[in-house]
């Protein structure tokens, strides 16, 4: 980038240093190599997967399971050998190989348990256990090797396991969507994850993990709340409406504290959806014929208000900010 500096602004001799820097600095292939590596892992896994699937008659289940176990063990052994000592804080980055090996091992372990369950029904009808057990291992691995990607896999696994336990079979089989059990499960899961996030933050236990927890908690509980608002009847609508509002207020505080624009955006979006739903419903209940024009009016005014809020957010947030954005904490 050739920036046009007015003459005299740069200190004496600085221009020469900069020119020298541009001439001499190396050209980094870091991202390209990483992308190639990632694609390679992806291709190899899917290619081997299809190969196994197609030749299962000739290879035999035991052989395949053995091979998967061996590969998983090799991955974990590599990670264990290259692991840094455990720390409560964020571990320093090591080679990206160990990271990829951990990811590969975790994925292979998932394949292993899935294989066991589908072929031999080791866990019987208890699909939740088949999901929950690997998730527990993932959770341990995530903390031991300090890997946020694996942590996210663990959280997803737990959510799926608990979702299966609490959701009535009818909701899945008959596609019944007015069931409230998933809504309450989502809210409970969100609350639990929020507590986990708060604990890791306040107890200073892997503090950088709190983002993943709070992120999952936000999306789960907000989507559950809005679903409850839509499918609820009578007083439930009011309850969920207030709940989404309260969650939004909480998120707003959290975003302010963490100085995070990401949480701020989603807090506003979710609350806007819930508020618009409530407002438009009342509007169309009151007068269906004139409702359309009023709805357009509502959208114009509410969006203008939100835009005003976004534009003057700095005064609301009272944060000194650069043009590039707020500093990450």
């Amino acid at each position: 980038m050739k920036a046009a500096f007015p003459p005299g602004i740069l200190p004496e001799g600085q221009q020469e240093r900069i020119d020298h820097h541009y001439r001499s600095r190396p050209f980094s292939l870091f991202w390209e190599m990483r992308a190639i590596l990632y694609l390679g892992v992806l291709f190899l896994c899917s290619g081997l997967g299809i190969l196994i699937y197609k030749n299962i008659d000739t290879i035999g289940h035991q052989t395949i399971l053995g091979a998967i176990v061996a590969a998983t063990a090799a991955c974990f052994w590599y990670c264990a050998r290259h692991a840094k000592p455990f720390t409560y804080a964020q571990a320093a980055a090591d080679s990206s190989w160990a990271e990829y090996m951990l990811l590969l091992g975790v994925l292979l372990f998932g394949v292993f348990t899935g294989y066991l369950q589908v072929k031999y029904s080791v866990f019987g009808d208890d699909h939740a256990l088949a999901l929950g057990l690997p998730a527990t291992l993932y959770l341990f691995l995530a903390y031991r090797f300090d890997h946020r990607g694996v942590l996210q896999l663990a959280i997803s696994g737990f959510c799926a396991a608990i979702g299966i336990v609490t959701t009535p079979l009818a909701a899945i089989q008959e596609n019944v969507f007015d069931h409230h059990a998933p809504v309450w499960t989502g809210l409970a899961m969100g609350a639990a994850l929020a507590v986990a996030g708060a604990l890791s933050e306040l107890r200073d236990f892997k503090r950088h993990f709190s983002f993943s927890y709070i992120n999952f908690a936000m999306h789960l509980s907000m989507i559950a709340g809005i679903t409850g608002l839509v499918i609820g009847k009578g007083w439930e609508k009011w309850f969920f409406f207030l709940l989404v509002g309260a969650l939004g207020a909480g998120l707003w505080k959290y975003a302010r504290w963490k100085r995070s624009h990401y949480f701020l955006l989603f807090a506003v979006l979710y609350v806007y959806v819930a508020f618009s739903y409530g407002f438009l419903r009342l509007l169309f209940l009151a007068d269906a014929s004139a409702g359309v024009s009023f709805a357009f009016f509502y959208f114009i005014l509410s969006c203008a208000g939100t835009i005003y809020f976004f534009l003057n957010m700095k005064t609301f947030l009272k944060a000194e900010s650069e043009d590039a954005g707020l500093p990450e904490k």
Partner: peptide
């Protein structure tokens, strides 16, 4: 076959990345 091609391409890519990371 597609799967053999995928697996071979995967090995080739990983090897390329390995060599590249070593070399540079």
């Amino acid at each position: 076959s597609v799967e053999a091609g995928l697996a071979l391409a995967g090995i080739f890519l990983i090897a390329t990345a390995w060599i590249g990371l070593r070399l540079f």
